[in-house]
């Protein structure tokens, strides 16, 4: 039913696509849209809570943060918390630069290596494939609390301590979550397409580049979104591997506002947290548009 709506809305905007019998149901569709809103809007209010809370805390004077019951609109509104939080204590501009470098590198690394591996698992026939796939899954099953020390020792032996290498090199060697995700999408593409290409003499790599990837835009968009967020917010690895303040990243910097006995300045912390969140929202906003374009692409080719 949802698909009807999609098409219909597109129809009204884009007359080149007109299919007559859609029009007749227009009133029904309006009612359907209203039902969707009725279902989603109450939830949206609840889901909007953290942002409103963060914003409200971000502009509060120190002594109004712990008022109870909470005051949603503080008096006065301290917009200066954004500037002060970012500039007064820690080199957040530097953290931003570092985080950007690492994140961009890791998105590419994750994409390239995970697409390749997922392609292998989804579309190439080989003996022992399932065993390797179980290994991919297996690496996700062990909580990192027990692998973190040996891994740290390993990177220390490589003399990678206090550098970005432990953060920037492993993403180029495949990320199980993305491999599994892309594999699921790749497996859902009809085999006839690459079978035909193969008979025409196309290599595996040409098939991946010309057939599989163009048909997987929504999946790739979601990998980019997740890779961006995962690396942007990555906390544990930089926390453990990076020691020098000038090599540190945003997520760890943000955490440094916290004090042992409640000396945390929540106003600054929330203000900076909101600033750090903005790029994530932008990436999501742009990324989800690709989903929409995805319809057209797969619709034409499918």
């Amino acid at each position: 039913m949802r698909q009807t709506l999609t098409s219909d809305v597109r129809v009204t905007k884009d007359s080149g696509y007109t299919i007559p019998w859609h029009q007749r149901r227009k009133t029904r569709q309006t009612i359907q849209a209203l039902i969707v809103y009725a279902l989603l809007l109450p939830g949206a209010i609840i889901f909007l809570f953290p942002l409103v809370w963060m914003l409200s805390t971000a502009v509060k004077p120190e002594n109004q943060i712990f008022l109870f019951p909470p005051k949603w609109i503080p008096e006065p509104i301290l917009w200066s918390n954004f500037w002060d939080g970012w500039n007064k204590f820690l080199p957040f501009n530097l953290f931003l630069r570092n985080t950007l470098i690492i994140t961009v590198n890791n998105i590419f690394g994750n994409l390239v290596s995970s697409c390749l591996a997922a392609y292998g698992f989804a579309r190439l026939r080989a003996r022992g494939k399932n065993i390797f796939f179980m290994l991919v899954l297996g690496t996700m099953l062990l909580p990192n609390e027990v692998t973190i020390i040996p891994q740290y020792v390993l990177f220390s032996l490589l003399k990678w301590n206090d550098s970005w290498l432990p953060l920037m090199v492993p993403p180029w060697f495949g990320w199980p979550f993305f491999i599994f995700l892309l594999r699921q999408f790749f497996m859902n593409i009809p085999h006839e397409l690459d079978e035909a290409a193969r008979l025409d003499g196309a290599s595996s790599w040409r098939i991946l580049w010309n057939i599989i990837l163009p048909l997987s835009k929504p999946a790739i968009a979601s990998v980019v979104i997740f890779a961006f967020i995962g690396n942007w917010n990555n906390f544990l690895a930089p926390l453990i591997y990076i020691r020098s303040l000038d090599r540190q990243v945003l997520a760890v910097g943000l955490n440094m506002f916290r004090g042992q006995y409640g000396q945390t300045n929540f106003g600054y912390m929330m203000a900076v947290a909101l600033l750090v969140l903005m790029p994530v929202l932008i990436v999501f906003f742009v990324g989800q548009r690709v989903f929409i374009q995805g319809i057209a692409t797969s619709g034409l080719k499918g």
Binding site: I149, Y152, V153, L157, L245, R258, G259
Partner: peptide, 20 residues
């Protein structure tokens, strides 16, 4: 050269540092 961690994180990282 100082490394700053929160109290809870520090207590986890010290054994990790020590192991290596």
């Amino acid at each position: 050269n100082a490394t700053y961690n929160t109290w809870g994180d520090h207590n986890q990282i010290v054994p990790t540092w020590a192991a290596a």
